[in-house]
């Protein structure tokens, strides 16, 4: 608004525009700046900030995409949501999924990073890192296909391995108990490379002198880890845990793909893999309960925003990986 007003008061063509150092040039500079940011700004506003604000609106209204009528229902959508057992089930599933998967992912990533750190100085170390990272960039549906087959109770590799280890065979994706862990296995495979690379960046930022000093003191193996790596990796570990939580909480594609089809529709069997993102998807786009889905989205939004802000705070305080 201030821009528009000063424009009319001080037309840039007037003789005084140039002399007061400011208005003419500053407005011209600003107009150029706005022109340059306009394309990205429009995208952000239309497809991200607009919807974020709109979300709050539809969550508090009884609202239908196909009709113009909407009535304010306050917390009505939320109350309705709380009466749905499947909502609580999805929260429970999500919590289970996150609480088990995140620590396992972080630990495995840390172990892989420590292993790769030594390997990187040797020939072929970069290739090892590339192979562990590769799954992260693969398309989820394409790679889920092969995992569906790996988890096949009759012919799958998973049971072949169990058989080899003299363990009982499992029903994997078709079992109420093992479906979600199966998804976890896939997600671990798909994402651990990302966190490994982040840990590697954290390890690379440890000053060489610190490691050398510890080596001279005779520290290696577990002692080295306890005395040097673990304290130095504190911030990045926290960062990885929060980032992994944010990402796992929003897992959708692999659950949809792995548990879809003949396994009782996505989220099955018996809602055992129905997590929050999946329930939002189904509520909105299968059953067209947009208001209900919005209420769920807001809960998820608040949960994740809290985590994100914590992550941002940590990242700003310890910018160690750049």
């Amino acid at each position: 608004m201030a821009q528009a007003r000063s424009l009319t008061q001080n037309p840039p063509q007037s003789a005084s525009a140039a002399r007061s150092d400011s208005w003419g040039t500053r407005i011209k500079t600003s107009i150029l700046g706005y022109g340059l940011i306009l394309p990205s700004l429009l995208v952000f506003l239309t497809f991200f900030y607009g919807p974020a604000i709109f979300l709050a609106y539809i969550a508090f209204f009884h609202w239908n995409i196909f009709s113009a009528n909407s009535t304010f229902v306050g917390l009505g959508n939320f109350l309705k949501l709380f009466h749905q057992p499947v909502f609580w089930q999805s929260l429970l599933n999500t919590a289970y999924y996150v609480v088990v998967l995140v620590p396992v992912t972080a630990l495995l990533a840390l172990a892989l990073a420590l292993l790769l750190r030594e390997g990187l100085s040797r020939r072929g170390g970069g290739i090892s890192r590339a192979f562990i990272f590769l799954p992260h960039v693969t398309p989820v549906v394409a790679t889920s296909i092969i995992w569906v087959w790996i988890f096949n109770p009759q012919f799958g590799l998973a049971n072949t391995v169990l058989h080899f280890l003299h363990l009982p065979a499992l029903n994997w994706l078709e079992s109420v108990h093992w479906a979600l862990p199966s998804v976890m296995v896939y997600t671990l495979w798909h994402s651990v490379g990302l966190y490994t690379v982040l840990f590697l960046a954290g390890l690379a930022s440890i000053p060489r002198s610190v490691i050398e000093a510890a080596t001279t003191d005779g520290a290696h193996g577990w002692r080295m880890f306890k005395r040097v790596f673990w304290p130095m990796l504190g911030p990045i570990t926290f960062f990885v845990v929060v980032l992994a939580s944010i990402n796992t909480m929003q897992t959708f594609s692999q659950i949809y793909t792995l548990t879809g089809g003949p396994h009782g529709g996505a989220g099955g069997p018996a809602f055992s893999t129905t997590t929050d993102s999946l329930l939002i998807y189904q509520t909105a786009f299968l059953y067209l309960h947009f208001s209900l889905a919005s209420a769920m989205s807001i809960i998820l939004f608040i949960l994740i925003m809290t985590l994100t802000l914590i992550q941002k705070w940590v990242a700003d305080r310890f910018v160690f990986y750049r």
Partner: peptide, 17 residues
Amino acid sequence: EVPSTGEILFDGERVDN
């Protein structure tokens, strides 16, 4: 740069604007 005050002339013709 734009001068804060005054005028700049090339061949007697103002150019600072």
